[in-house]
Amino acid sequence: MAATAPPLLEVRDLKVSFNTEDGLVRAVDGVSFTLGHGEVLGIVGESGSGKSVTMMSVLRLINDPNARFEGEVLYKGRSVMDLPDDRMREVRGGEIAMIFQDPMTSLNPVYKVADQIIEAIVTHQDIGKAAARARAVDLLKQVGIPQADRRADDYPHQFSGGMRQRAMIAMALANDPDILIADEPTTALDVTIQAQILELIARLKDEFQSAVILITHDLGVVAGIADRIGVMYAGRLVEFGGKRDLFYDPQHPYTWGLLGSIPRLDRPKAERLHSIAGTPPSLIDPPAGCRFRPRCPHAFDRCTQEPALEARTDNQRHLDRCWLDVESKRAVRDKTIHGEIAAA
């Protein structure tokens, strides 16, 4: 039965490119994934890897006239790309909600917090002003705003960064969305607040029965709450799998680099924090074959050919784009992850 129903969200070979003066920037170049009901998907990658652009494309929030889209985004089996504008607006905020990186600038400074949440509610629900307000205050309570009834009439500048992100989450959940897309929701916040916000998302996704896509550059952020994780590099997914697979049996050297870049307290202190040598490639003229090849210490002849994203281990749900055979990977990866490469 479950196999016949379409997944909640399916992205098929999504390509997003921007025409610029310097040439065609392929920001997203063939990304595919699925998201099930109630699932938490983590998308990890550094700035410019295309993770935000992918998610903005899902909601058709990129209205740059120079942008070109290819591929398919299916929400409950229906193509998002072909939805008429008014139907798309019902999806946005109603069925798929999104929160953004910087809570300091994501709320409109001239309207009260409650009014901004009420606006989200009345846009999608046939509900009176008083009921919408009651719902807004209730949502603010649920996201942990103290004295929500009074603070609801505050303006965003009277809220701290953490509170603003809570308010953003309240606004996103206002219409019980099926999917919550969180684009670097903790990046702009203090470390202690980061943990609280992640906890909040983890708790609320159960209460609201929403699936979550969590975009971050920090593997540590998704380690707690993600079911599956995709690692993006230069516009492509380079590895995709269950959380345990990705942390305990990482297959792609870029993932190793990311894992190695996390400061660890349980290992001897390295001279300096490990980093991945080099910089991400140009998206206008990307290297042929594997995009990570120029920065990869394990690159060999075959890497000039394009590796497909496919299962290369025994686990059919663990996909990666690396030509190295599984045995050699398992043999060499610890050096990268544990930082001996940096010392050498």
């Binding site: 946005r92 905020g93 953004f100």
Partner: peptide
């Protein structure tokens, strides 16, 4: 280009409402 305009669109507001209530007002 402000983030809150993107938020307004992500809420599902119509372009007209984004333009008048959020962009024009500020």
């Amino acid at each position: 280009n402000e983030d809150f305009v993107r938020t307004a669109r992500a809420k599902g507001l119509s372009e007209r409402r984004v333009l008048t209530r959020h962009m024009l007002r500020t």
